[in-house]
């Protein structure tokens, strides 16, 4: 007990862990979002902000848990993370791979710990619209078709030769989906389950109503996934990255 206490003190006294997160400045701009909120046309203004160039890795998150043991698999309350939380952290996974099986609560706590936050959906979508050379590649149907494999091992940014996008951000279309800070409002309702908006997502023939761009299937799939999540839920192919508002 005393030893534990001493260790915590020692950790607190130690310099902040060496998680080197590189943030990339994203200029302000207009986004025509694929997601329509109630009664709008999908136009969003995205203020200048900074986006982490990579998703948080297994190694990054291990460091975080060492410093904040309340977020270890053993100690995290079930209110904040489901049974799958960090369930594959000890397996032989590459430490440089994006961390998965993390809840929204844990992702948010991680970003706070590095004086950052989760990106908003609009910020995420804005940056994810870019390919290697264009800030908005979404009118390129061949490129867009490749994004249909997002969240699978065949995702374009999961291939060995994948390069950063035009903003200098990597892995936006990787094998791992990513949490966003305001994911729960994606459907325009605090509790989307059972609401009209939630229903639109779940049933035949109604999906066209809530999406500005009906054939942006990568976004449809991503929103379908996030809308199924609770903030304590974890998945083997869902991770996160952090963002910072411009001062």
């Amino acid at each position: 007990m005393l030893a534990n206490f001493m260790m915590v003190v020692a950790l607190l006294a130690a310099p902040p862990p060496a998680v080197a997160t590189e943030f990339v400045g994203i200029p302000a701009g207009e986004l025509r979002s694929t997601v329509r909120y109630e009664g709008d046309d999908g136009k969003r203004h995205v203020a200048a902000f900074a986006m982490a160039s990579k998703a948080v890795t297994v190694r990054d998150f291990k460091t975080f848990v060492r410093v904040h043991p309340q977020w270890s698999r053993e100690r995290v309350p079930s209110l904040l993370a489901d049974a799958g939380y960090l369930s594959d952290a000890d397996s032989a996974r590459n430490d440089d791979a994006p961390v998965t099986h993390v809840s929204w609560f844990a992702a948010e706590a991680y970003c706070k710990s590095i004086q950052a936050r989760l990106p908003d959906w609009a910020e995420w979508e804005y940056v994810a619209a870019a390919d290697a050379t264009r800030h908005d590649a979404r009118s390129d149907s061949a490129w867009r078709a490749r994004t249909f494999a997002d969240g699978t091992p065949r995702a374009m940014d999961a291939t060995p030769g994948a390069v950063a996008n035009a903003y200098g951000v990597s892995g936006m279309h990787g094998a791992v989906w990513e949490w966003v800070g305001d994911y729960a409002t994606l459907l325009g309702d605090a509790d989307k389950r059972g609401s009209d908006d939630g229903d639109r997502l779940q049933f035949c023939g109604a999906t066209g109503l809530s999406f500005a761009n009906r054939d942006d299937y990568a976004i449809l799939k991503r929103v379908a996934l996030l809308s199924a999540m609770e903030p304590r839920s974890t998945l083997g192919n869902l991770g996160f990255r952090c963002a910072r508002s411009s001062p």
């Binding site: 059972g194 229903d199 779940q202 049933f203 035949c204 999540m229 839920s233 998945l235 192919n237």
Partner: peptide, 13 residues
């Protein structure tokens, strides 16, 4: 409703 679709929206695992 939904032929069961609403009741069976199921995450991986």
């Amino acid at each position: 409703q939904g032929g069961g679709a609403e009741a069976t929206f199921t995450l991986p695992g």
